[in-house]
Structure formats: structure tokens, C-alpha cells
């Protein structure tokens, strides 16, 4: 019984990591319908910005909550800037081009960031400094163990989800985002500066990836230039599972995926872990393409 509960706990904590990345993914996909392959790599850059800035400030020596907040802030700003550059340079010129071209460009940007990272940041895995250690040590009862950091990540994911929900549904920017996502041209006819709205969305999504990078670095303190590839793809699966563009859906989808992975690895076949995410993706797209929470959008027939 303890084993099963532990698997559930593991699954939820893994899912909350995917959720952090999936939030940014779903935002960008929601507005552009573009699989931003580079999202996972922005996440990787976020972790590296966190690494270098905490070394710069010397936080690896004296951990504190303030340090974590500051580093996360720096990483989010840095990633927002990177996200802006990517959108401005690689995606915006292709706004009217066929979708496949944008997709190929996204792949190109992703490969560029990965290999540039390998050459300039070094291919070897780096240790992410423990800039924050929650007080109280281990949590849990008896054999059941919970990492307090992961509880924190879950809380942060849920908080970010609520904040995003507020941004998307209650603010002017959110209304503009929803309009742009519905139809670019009509939105711009209505006087919405589509390009600017898309830029903001990209920056917001990339900032979330940056935050995720720092938090993942804290929990899994091994960062390397290719670390974003698989989490990026899995976060996308999570976003599709929850219904693309749906903020709550992304978190629920991510936790579902985390649970599924944890149970499959624990009880059945750990070697099929990476196949599982894609199998889930294929099944969900075939059975319910709109995702668990998505609203079906009628295609022009």
C-alpha cells in the first residue's frame, strides 16, 4: 500500500514539473497553433541563466528563499528576452507563410539552441547550485517520503496556473490574446495589435519556461544543453492531453501524464517510459483531438 501511495506521490511531483513547462507551451500554442520546438530549449537556457547568475551573486554558498526568488526573476527576464528574439527574428517574418515553414523554422531554432549550447556552454552536465533549501528537512510519514521542494513546485505550478487564468480571462491583454488566437485577421481588423500581443504571449510563455528551468535545476540538479528536448516534447503531450490553449487543462494533463509514467515505470515496464508519452498523445489525438478539457473547434468543411 505504501508503495502504491509513494508511486502516486512520485507521479504528482513529476507531473508538476511537466506542468510548469506545459503552461508556457499551451500559451504559445494556443495563440499561434505552432509547436514551438524551441520551448524546451528556452527552458534549458533558463536553467543555465539560473546557474550562471547564482554563481555570479555567490548564492551557491548561502542559500535562501530570497536568492531563489531573485534568481527565478533573472531567469524569467532573460528567457522572456530570448523568447522575444526568437519570435521577432524567426517566427514573425513567417506570419503569412505556410504552417509547415514555421514548423521547420521552429525545428531549426531548436537545433540551433541545442548545438550552440553544447559548443559554448559545454556538453558535460553541470551541477545546479542548491540556492534554496526548505526548512524542516524531509516530509512524509513512515516509509512514505515527500520532497518538500516538490511540494513547493506543485504549489508554484498551481499559483502560476491561477495567475495565468486571471491574465487570460480578466485582463485586456488576455482578451486580446484570446481574440488573436481565435482569428489573427479579424483581431487586427478590430484594432488589436496582433504582433505585439503575440510577442507578449511569447515572452510570457518563455518566462514561465525560465522559471521552470530554475525549479527543475533545483530538484534535479544536473543541467546540460540537451536537457530540454524530452521534457519539451512531454510538456507538449501534456498540453494536448489537457486541451491545447487551456491553462487548467495543461496542469491536469501534465499531472495525469506524470502519474501514468510513474505507475507504468513502477509496475510494468520502465523501458517504455518515453514511448508512453507518445502513445498517450496518439491515442488522445485519435479519440478526442480537443483534449480532456478542450472545446472542439469546427474545421471549415
Amino acid at each position: 500500500m505504501t508503495e502504491f501511495v509513494q508511486h502516486i506521490v512520485n507521479g504528482i511531483s513529476l507531473g508538476s514539473i511537466y506542468a510548469l513547462i506545459a503552461l508556457g507551451y499551451t500559451l504559445v500554442f494556443g495563440i499561434l497553433q505552432l509547436i514551438n520546438f524551441a520551448h524546451g530549449d528556452v527552458f534549458m537556457l533558463g536553467a543555465f541563466i539560473g546557474l550562471y547568475s547564482s554563481k555570479f551573486f555567490g548564492f551557491d554558498q548561502n542559500p535562501s528563499l530570497g536568492a531563489l526568488v531573485l534568481i527565478m526573476g533573472i531567469s524569467m527576464i532573460g528567457c522572456a528576452a530570448i523568447g522575444y528574439c526568437i519570435e521577432r527574428l524567426a517566427y514573425r517574418p513567417l506570419r503569412r507563410a505556410p504552417r509547415i515553414n514555421v514548423l521547420i523554422t521552429a525545428v531549426g531554432v531548436s537545433l540551433f539552441l541545442e548545438f550552440a549550447g553544447q559548443l559554448f556552454l559545454g556538453a558535460d552536465p553541470k551541477f545546479f547550485p542548491q540556492i534554496y533549501q526548505p526548512a524542516g528537512g524531509d516530509m512524509g510519514a513512515g516509509a512514505l517520503k515527500v520532497n518538500p521542494l516538490q511540494v513547493m513546485v506543485l504549489v508554484i505550478s498551481l499559483a502560476l496556473m491561477t495567475a495565468l487564468q486571471y491574465v487570460v480571462f480578466k485582463t485586456r491583454l488576455g482578451r486580446a490574446m484570446r481574440a488573436v488566437s481565435f482569428n489573427h485577421e479579424y483581431a487586427s481588423l478590430m484594432g488589436i495589435p496582433t504582433d505585439r500581443v503575440i510577442s507578449y504571449t511569447f515572452m510570457l510563455g518563455s518566462a514561465l519556461a525560465g522559471a521552470a528551468g530554475v525549479l527543475v535545476g533545483l530538484i534535479y540538479p544536473k543541467i546540460e544543453p540537451l536537457m530540454g528536448v524530452l521534457p519539451g516534447l512531454k510538456a507538449f503531450v501534456a498540453a494536448v492531453l489537457g486541451g491545447i490553449g487551456n491553462v487548467t487543462g495543461a496542469v491536469v494533463g501534465a499531472i495525469t501524464l506524470g502519474l501514468a509514467e510513474s505507475l507504468v515505470v513502477g509496475y510494468w515496464a520502465p523501458t517504455y517510459r518515453d514511448a508512453l508519452a507518445f502513445a498517450v498523445l496518439i491515442v488522445i489525438l485519435l479519440i478526442k483531438p480537443a483534449g480532456l478539457f478542450g472545446t472542439g473547434r469546427t474545421e471549415k468543411v
Partner: peptide, 13 residues
């Protein structure tokens, strides 16, 4: 798998 960073499920088992 090579890309795994979370091994808790295996370790729990």
C-alpha cells in the same frame, strides 16, 4: 532511459 531525470518510480519499486 538515457534522458530520465526522475528515478523515483524505479527506486520505489
Amino acid at each position: 532511459n538515457k534522458n530520465d531525470v526522475d528515478f523515483k518510480s524505479q527506486l520505489t519499486a
